[in-house]
């Protein structure tokens, strides 16, 4: 099986939230409560145990490159966020039960019948994607529509995106397409366009990556996500060093050398 993923081109997003609704319907997810946030047109705030696609709305007091509009120095950015299915996934590496697995599509999948709800994955995700559900305690996140892929179907969000802002496909091909899109936008004058996550050293790449036109923080994305398990070796080495030092100090204190 070839590696599959999402390329989300935020310059094409119109903020219709069809991806959010299609995801919830296909995966039969519960609502998040009915909370008014005042964050532009975004009332679901962030990804969570029952929101696996989330559309962020960013109102900025500045125009996009080459933007011509009556709104003056203003632009309204929309971005459909999703689990990044990291090439090196913190959730997967920290899972003690083996509930989190890497599938044949190179996606990261939680097996709900194995998950025991320990929550290690929640703190190990550098993006804050995976989350436990309050009622059953287990961890939930985007499955890359594993069940749909098995039936040779496109994930629900990409299928329902009316503007091809969410593109699903072979990662190799998506990366080429994404690079071409960036170049095209640069040619047209939107020079701030760049790819986020096509090559993310902290996670060794993201299988769901994004075309953005502002810094990652504007979209509530971490500027330099690092999978915490990368630091395991270093912390064990420091721990060993500290233990040796403590032992040496203790010996020195007793023998008085």
């Amino acid at each position: 099986m070839s590696k599959k993923g999402f390329f989300t081109d935020t310059t094409l997003c119109i903020g219709c939230k069809a991806c959010e609704v299609a995801c919830k319907q296909w995966n039969q997810l519960p609502d998040d409560g009915f909370k008014f946030t005042g964050l532009s047109y975004d009332n679901s705030e962030h990804l969570g145990s029952s929101t696996w696609r989330h559309v962020a709305f960013v109102e900025r007091p500045m125009a996009l490159g080459m933007q011509v509009s009556g709104a003056g120095n203003f632009s309204w950015l929309m971005m459909s966020d999703v689990c990044k299915h990291c090439a090196r996934a913190g959730c997967l590496e920290s899972c003690p039960t083996g509930a989190l697995v890497r599938t044949e599509y190179d996606s990261v999948y939680v097996q709900p019948d194995v998950c025991n709800g320990c929550g290690y994955c929640v703190s190990a995700c550098p993006f804050g994607v995976i989350d436990r559900r309050e009622d059953d305690g287990r961890a939930w996140k985007c499955t890359l529509c594993y069940d749909r892929l098995k039936a040779d179907m496109t994930p629900a969000c990409a299928k329902h995106c009316p503007t091809a802002s969410i593109q699903f496909g072979d990662l190799v091909e998506l990366r080429v397409r994404a690079q071409q899109r960036v170049e095209e936008l640069h040619r047209r004058g939107t020079t701030e366009a760049y790819l986020y996550g096509a090559d993310q050293p902290g996670t060794e790449g993201l299988n769901a990556f994004f075309l953005l036109v502002d810094k990652p923080e504007a979209y509530n994305l971490p500027p330099d996500p690092v999978v915490p398990t990368r630091k395991v070796r270093r912390s064990w080495v420091s721990l060993a060093g500290a233990a040796v030092a403590m032992a040496a100090l203790a010996v020195a204190a007793v023998t008085g050398v």
């Binding site: 939230k17 959010e20 609704v21 919830k24 319907q25 519960p30 609502d31 998040d32 409560g33 009915f34 909370k35 008014f36 005042g38 047109y41 009332n43 679901s44």
Partner: peptide, 12 residues
């Protein structure tokens, strides 16, 4: 419908 209501939950 909960999936639509949660996205725009209140009159503004």
């Amino acid at each position: 419908l909960s999936w639509l209501s949660e996205l725009m939950p209140q009159m503004f």
